[in-house]
Design a protein around this nucleic acid. Structure first.
Lengths: 211, 211
DNA sequence: AACAAATTACCCCATATGGGTAATTTCATT
DNA sequence: AATGAAATTACCCATATGGGGTAATTTGTT
């Protein structure tokens, strides 16, 4: 390991020259941090960041040619021990959740004050996940049930068995009712969920957290 | 509104008398905060917290009779404008994600220092979601793909259409191949996913983030 | 008491699905 | 060039599924 011990190696991927320079200067001038590599496009970053052994990479999302999200996806496979923090102005659900799915461990908006940015870099290498408060709330809210279920208790019960791939007869036996009853319930479930097949029902059940 | 303006009203639900007292004292003695209600069991809290107009409720999880998670679920429906922060020693996935699904907006471990606890209370009413760093990482990691897909590109493509409830013929037409080809692919998908029906395949696809 | 919703049950029937088996072609990696 | 995985096509058959309809009973809430 050729790193100075205790010094956090950071790289920046950001197409705005001014912001990129500000970030690298800020980080490199801060005690305990170093920033010797920065990129104005993601394609170059992806091809060059391998083997440089960075602790943290700050990644913009809107970038020429390749998005920062795509970049994280590719880089996370090549350098899985490096932590990625998105640093962006985007705060739509797609940007947020696609970034996290791609492998980002933090998500900060660009109005994050310098001191907090440095704090966030420390936090992510200590196993945390720094997020701007409003982003954190969005993430947390994604776990909540959207709205209440249109299904009755019995229907919900049957929907759950439906999701397990049980057929009419098995469901019927398990609930001590006839197969015809199960079919009747399923018809009602489909009507209420506006679907017309098991597959769609299962998908909706999981996505809408009905089960 | 009978509140003092600018004063944050907090309630505590915690069965350990010592901790409960420490928390209420800490909060009530801090400028800008008040804590006039605390409960040592969740059942009482649920029946009495309605109409008291709290801004934030700190909720333990392990409680006699009714868990804090169940409590949040019930209370969040009755007082949706109140924010809930779990304050607990539990850091298993079930405790975390069940709490968030129930409607908690924050999740702190009990070793959180007093100053940070007060900061977190402010953060949650400002639309944030305070979390202990390790909890935040757990939440973020839940979005990552578990491991790589065992499916080929074509199979993944078909699995997606399967999830939409498309039948063999529609899928075949869309991919410009024969229905028999689609069937063959689906058989391979089922074999690789260890399932034997559309419903199970859809469930696994979504849960394992294969689509 | 009255009414809506939920639950139970049954019919017919066309189509979709899943299991089994087999063979050919394409394509990438060795 | 060769080996193997992936993609492609095809067939048979028993069963499951979904759409159509009808109707009685129970439960829950005005």
């Amino acid at each position: 390991m050729e790193n100075k011990p205790g010094v956090i190696k950071v790289a920046v991927v950001e197409d705005d020259a001014e912001i990129r320079q500000l970030l690298t200067l800020l980080i490199d001038a801060s005690p305990g941090f170093s920033c010797k590599h920065s990129y104005n496009d993601c394609k170059t970053a992806v091809s060059e960041l391998f083997g440089l052994d960075h602790d943290v990479i700050l990644m913009d999302i809107i970038l020429p040619q390749m998005s920062g999200i795509e970049g994280v996806k590719l880089l996370k496979e090549k350098i899985p021990n490096t932590d990625f923090i998105m640093l962006t102005v985007q705060e739509d659900d797609n940007s947020i959740f696609d970034s996290l799915c791609a492998g980002a461990s933090g998500y900060l908006l660009k109005d994050t004050p310098p001191a907090e940015l440095l704090e966030s870099i420390k936090e992510v290498i200590n196993g945390g996940s720094p997020m701007t408060p409003s982003i954190a709330r969005r993430v947390i809210d994604s776990f909540k049930r959207t709205d209440e279920s249109p299904l009755s208790k019995r229907e919900t019960e049957i929907l759950e068995l439906l999701c397990d791939g049980k057929n009419y007869k098995v469901i019927a036996d398990q609930l001590f009712v006839s197969g015809n009853t199960v079919r009747a319930h399923i018809k009602n479930i489909y009507r209420k969920l506006h679907v017309s097949s098991r597959a769609e029902a299962v998908k909706k059940a999981i996505n809408d957290k009905l089960v």
